[in-house]
Write a protein that binds this DNA or RNA. Structure first.
Length: 264
DNA sequence: ATGGTTGCACGGCAA
């Protein structure tokens, strides 16, 4: 059976309904994980998205900031959301479908200054990574079929950014973040489902800043959005897709959908 | 070096 899983930071789900409809029609994901929905649950346009062919959903949001959701062609056997760093800021939601746990994460961006002593947002980001790492390490054995997706707000590899050298002190690509993301990845032996298909020598991005006149021409991107699978699922990996074209869909988003397809 | 843009229960904050 095919399982096609997409992660997309939509930066306001209410502004993105036309783009969501187009993406779902063109790519037909089975499980669609959204981040930065920016809407409280009572105002979430849930029925509209369910009508696009994904009739099962869970949402977990708040006013103005953050927010995560999962839509699916198949019913959920369970769903949970966890809070991290003592904050109720809607950065995690998880479901089980077909015996597979799917975790959808929105890691804090971390602000501008990569120093936890002077920047509380960066401190929060590091702490969030440590807490999620401890939780996955304690929670689940490696042989459990699990998928972790989301806007992890870290581009770990040299070719996950347009210039490794120029971004070494830029939040999202600093060594301390990359190291912590590596520890999270090591907990369950998570396999990077996108780099499974794209060699590390090749540039690959999922985000381009709004602050570029011509994002495609300058192509100063970063790969902040990820799909990971546990080792037991990795042998089923069949395809990947980064919907670069969606960067031009109006109104524009800075993140594009990232998809992995597996046979389960 | 700086400034560049977007979104949000509308305006300072987060990204």
């Amino acid at each position: 059976m095919r399982l096609k899983v997409t992660s997309w930071n939509v930066n306001s789900v209410r502004l993105r309904l036309d783009s969501l409809k187009r993406f779902i029609a063109e790519h037909q994901p089975d499980v669609l994980c959204l981040q930065e929905t920016k809407v409280p649950d009572e105002h979430f346009p849930r029925a509209e998205i369910e009508a696009m062919g994904l009739p099962h959903s869970v949402v977990h949001g708040m006013k103005s900031y953050n927010g995560v959701a999962i839509f699916s062609t198949r019913p959920f056997e369970a769903s949970t959301s966890r809070s991290w760093c003592g904050k109720q800021d809607c950065r995690h939601i998880a479901v089980r479908t077909d015996g597979i746990e799917v975790h959808n994460l929105y890691v804090p961006a971390g602000g501008d200054v990569p120093d936890p002593k002077v920047n509380p947002k960066f401190k929060h980001k590091l702490r969030f990574l440590k807490e999620t790492t401890a939780w996955f390490a304690a929670e689940a054995p490696r042989d459990r079929p699990m998928i972790l997706v989301g806007d992890l707000n870290i581009a770990p590899l040299e070719n996950d950014v347009w210039s490794h050298k120029q971004l070494l002190k830029v939040v999202s690509h600093t060594p301390v973040e990359v190291e912590l993301l590596g520890r999270l990845q090591a907990t369950l032996g998570w396999v990077d489902a996108i780099r499974h298909f794209v060699p590390e020598t090749e540039k690959l991005y999922s985000w381009w800043s709004y602050r570029n006149r011509d994002w495609a021409k300058s192509d100063r991107g970063r790969r902040l959005d990820h799909v990971w699978v546990t080792p037991v699922l990795a042998r089923g990996l069949r395809e990947h897709h980064v919907a670069r074209a969606a960067r031009d869909w109006m109104p524009a988003t800075d993140h594009v959908p990232v998809t992995a397809t597996l046979e389960i």
